[in-house]
């Protein structure tokens, strides 16, 4: 079987998800055994536009990026969104509560940016708001094990199984003390699992970086906030760190 050709591309992001691939350490050797990495700007000089699988990191923020992404989609047989910025927009969407011109004015002041493509931004989009995405590898950053699962699945010709259940499932298996019991607001109950509940396991509440699975009923939210004496405003703010515009709560 011919090895699939893989290319990595990055848009607006911290590039931490690509770093997770470098962090596979010795296993990178396995990776380059099963796929041909033809483009990975962060670690290699060579580049080719002939690839089967395009792996996209980052959110789409500018017309010049949108054009580039569409070209990549044309070239690729399979397109994978890598990490929260790509899969759901992630923290890059926090700024969508303001218009691009408001944000630009606040950031660059009165500096003249007219006609400069670099600065021409629109509201943050996730990759699937621009092109069709075949598979998502969620998380901020991605979970290396899940990356491996997705890549091995694609290489074996099967659809990767991405969990469709909430973080609580993994958190319970890890026997963590529920963060609600510790007076913290955790998004684990409504966030897609697959991270092995890494934040709650390390004593920090889930921020929902793998995307919201279910919008709970208002009665349910009220019950929980009351039971654990938590603040509605805090919940709203926490929900929009990664999921701005998802309207998890009214």
């Amino acid at each position: 079987m011919k090895k699939p050709r893989v290319a990595f591309f990055d848009f607006a992001s911290c590039e931490g998800c690509q770093l997770q691939i470098a962090d596979l350490e010795e296993e990178i050797l396995d990776l380059i055994n099963i796929v041909d990495v033809v483009s990975f700007r962060e670690v290699m000089k060579e580049h080719s536009d002939d690839y089967d699988i395009a792996i996209i990191e980052g959110s789409i923020m500018r017309p010049i990026d949108e054009g580039r992404l569409k070209e990549i989609r044309e070239n690729a047989k399979i397109l994978v969104a890598l990490g929260a910025c790509a899969t759901i927009g992630g923290i890059n969407k926090i700024r969508n509560q303001w218009t691009p011109s408001e944000v630009k004015k606040e950031v660059y002041g009165n500096y003249n940016l007219k006609g400069n493509d670099f600065f021409d931004v629109f509201q943050t989009k996730a990759v699937d708001e621009v092109v069709k995405v075949d598979y998502n590898i969620h998380g901020c950053p991605i979970n290396r094990d899940e990356f491996k699962k997705v890549i091995t699945s694609i290489a074996m010709g099967k659809n990767p199984e991405i969990p469709n259940y909430p973080v609580c499932v993994e958190c319970k298996k890890n026997e963590n003390i529920c963060l609600f019991e510790l007076g913290k607001f955790c998004l684990g109950p409504i966030t897609r699992a697959g991270c092995n509940s890494i934040c709650p396991t390390n004593g920090s509440p889930c921020d929902g970086c793998r995307g919201i699975l279910k919008k709970p009923e208002v009665e349910c939210i009220n019950d929980i906030l009351e039971r654990y004496n938590l603040d509605y405003e805090e919940m709203k703010r926490r929900c929009n760190i990664y999921n701005y515009g998802k309207e998890v709560c009214k």
């Binding site: 926090i94 700024r95 606040e106 703010r237």
Partner: peptide, 21 residues
């Protein structure tokens, strides 16, 4: 590189959220 406007993201954020953002 696309500008990401982090400063705008911090506006109004609780002090505990500044670190993760």
């Amino acid at each position: 590189e696309a500008p990401r406007f982090f400063e705008a993201m911090l506006k109004g954020r609780d002090y505990n959220e500044l670190r993760p953002i």
